[in-house]
Amino acid sequence: MVVVSFLFMCFIFGTTFLAIKIGVDSGLPPFLSAGFRFFVSGLILFTIMVCNKKTTKRLLIQKEMLLTGGCLTFGTFSTLYWAEQYVTSGVAAVLSSTGPMMILIIQSIFLKQKGNRLSFIGCFIGMIGVSFLLFPSLTIKTSSFWLYGCLVIIIGEVFYAAGTIYTKQVMNRFQNTSPIALNAVQMMYGGILLIVLSFVTERGQFDINMNPASIGSLVYLIVFGSMIGHSLYYWLVVRTNPVFPSTWLFISPIIALLLGVIFYEEAISWLTALGALTIITGTILVNFQSIRGLDKKKLIFTRALKS
């Protein structure tokens, strides 16, 4: 059950980047559609949790939820949605996998935490991979917005990293609260912030042409991308540990690249492929010590058998 759930989660997360791209290309305002997605999915999940007495409404007034939502949902996805107007879904997925490297950088520079040598090597390799992806942007043939989009996604991963580090403190404080409920509330707050941003920056774009592509994109991202995908992630955290589910970062970008090429005719050059491989390699090295720790404790296989 654990292994099947993990593979299903990886597939879902790998498809969300293409779903976002389809929605944006079909005419959905990036910030409004992102805000609607996360607010609705968070509201549905939270309502279910309250009805099942897994949490209480008091969770809605906790300032930690606003701060978490501001980083994990608002900061990460406002940048991703905007960037996918100009960047292919596959490249967006690969750049999004740089989150662990940003966590390492923040912990080392700002929190003064010592990292192991292999992690820093992985971070350096990952940055080389990013340069491979950005290199085509420096040529005359590529629009400058491609470069801006790539850089904006990386900025979004800084928000993701900060939110992830802060979330560890939040989960320690709310140990008796379901992680799914915590995620639902932070998605609601992040969604509200995205909608507010849309009112400020996307005025005049609320007359949306709701075609099959835009409707399908929204429904898929709400149901599968947010509700099912994120619930599976936190279920795996509870059943295994915080490290194992995060290894989706090694698999989903590859799925996203292939889906973009096969179903959306996104071009992929040898330099893009090399950059993607290099970034994923760097991400694995950054997390190598944690992954190796899983083998020592035998948590994955033991609990997978019990399921």
Rank of each mutant, 00 (worst) to 15 (best):
V91C: 05
A93S: 14
G69W: 05
V170A: 12
T73G: 00
L151I: 14
Q186E: 03
A184V: 03
F135I: 05
I109G: 01
G69C: 11
S96E: 08
I192L: 15
T167V: 07
L104V: 12
L197T: 13
I165Q: 02
A92F: 05
V94I: 11
V158N: 05
V185Q: 08
A92S: 15
Q107K: 14
I165G: 01
A161Q: 02
V158K: 01
N183W: 11
I155S: 12
T167N: 13
G75P: 06
T76L: 04
V91Q: 04
G190V: 02
F124H: 00
I106R: 10
A92G: 14
S178Q: 09
G122L: 08
S97A: 15
I153T: 02
L182G: 03
V94Q: 00
I180Y: 06
L133I: 15
Q85H: 11
S131G: 10
I165N: 05
L147Y: 11
I121N: 03
I155D: 09
G75A: 07
I140F: 13
Q175E: 13
G75R: 13
T167P: 00
L118G: 04
P136I: 10
G99D: 06
K141Q: 14
S89G: 02
L193N: 05
I125G: 07
G191S: 03
S137I: 06
S198H: 11
L80P: 09
S198F: 06
A83P: 12
N176M: 12
L182D: 00
K112I: 00
V170P: 04
T68C: 15
Q113T: 10
Y81P: 00
